[in-house]
Design a protein around this nucleic acid. Structure first.
Lengths: 130, 130
DNA sequence: CCGTATCCGCAGAGATACTG
DNA sequence: CAGTATCTCTGCGGATACGG
């Protein structure tokens, strides 16, 4: 989709432009359902479609399918279809997907440690404004 | 949207629901321009509005203003207005904002290390599909 | 120089119903 | 059970013009 940047031989990574890998990563894990799916699979191991749907609770079939497809495409998880009478599909993190749990954990830790401050700052800001 | 989690004593953080702090954090740093602004300020120290606009390059005034306001509201940066003849406004990360650079750095490192694999997986997936 | 206000277009999220 | 297809509608994001 991104044809904006010509086609340089990926000279450096520190670009602030859209071609930066970090930006693309944020598009993935910054996505509401994608991060939840990754964390869910990371905590519980392989899961079926309906398990994930129940676990995340709030996601629609469409969004879940779309999200999982994207993650599969990115090589973060595998999709295994067992053609039994009721079809069974299992999703499992690849090593690559598992490795992504680490930075996500750091994010989570920061959130748990500091979101209280953010809430306070927000309340104060809103209060002062009003 | 049930209000069951109205004001509990923050029992656990592992919720997959929207009330989880991690989710809210993702809303912030998952935002295209917010992360770039934070990283820019982290690398270069205090910056003026126009500096940021030039640095990020691609952001509109509206989006930049909106983003910076949001980050200010969250206590991640400070906004200092110097009422000179042409108004001068400086933005600077707070300690809280600086601390956020750490998990972001982890993300960046993962991206630089693994986005190549993601690209390959994506190419293979697309190729096999077609 | 910095910011606000307004309008508009479009991608994406959700609900629903159907197929294998 | 898992997934696709279709429709609608919100609201983000961009361009523009104006104010302090």
């Amino acid at each position: 989709m991104d044809v904006t940047t010509a086609d340089g031989p990926a000279p450096r990574f520190n670009a602030f432009a859209a071609s930066c890998p970090s930006r693309r990563l944020l598009d993935t894990i910054g996505n509401k359902w994608a991060s939840l799916a990754i964390v869910a699979l990371g905590l519980k191991g392989p899961m079926r479609f309906s398990e994930l749907a129940a676990r995340i609770e709030g996601v629609s079939q469409k969004m879940l399918t779309q999200t999982l497809r994207g993650l599969e495409r990115d090589g973060l998880l595998t999709r295994t279809v067992t053609p039994s009478v009721p079809v069974r599909v299992d999703y499992e993190l690849t090593p690559l997907g598992l490795s992504l749990l680490e930075p996500i954990r750091h994010l989570k830790e920061w959130a748990e440690a500091h979101m209280g401050e953010v809430d306070r700052a927000r309340a104060e800001y809103d209060g002062a404004g009003a």
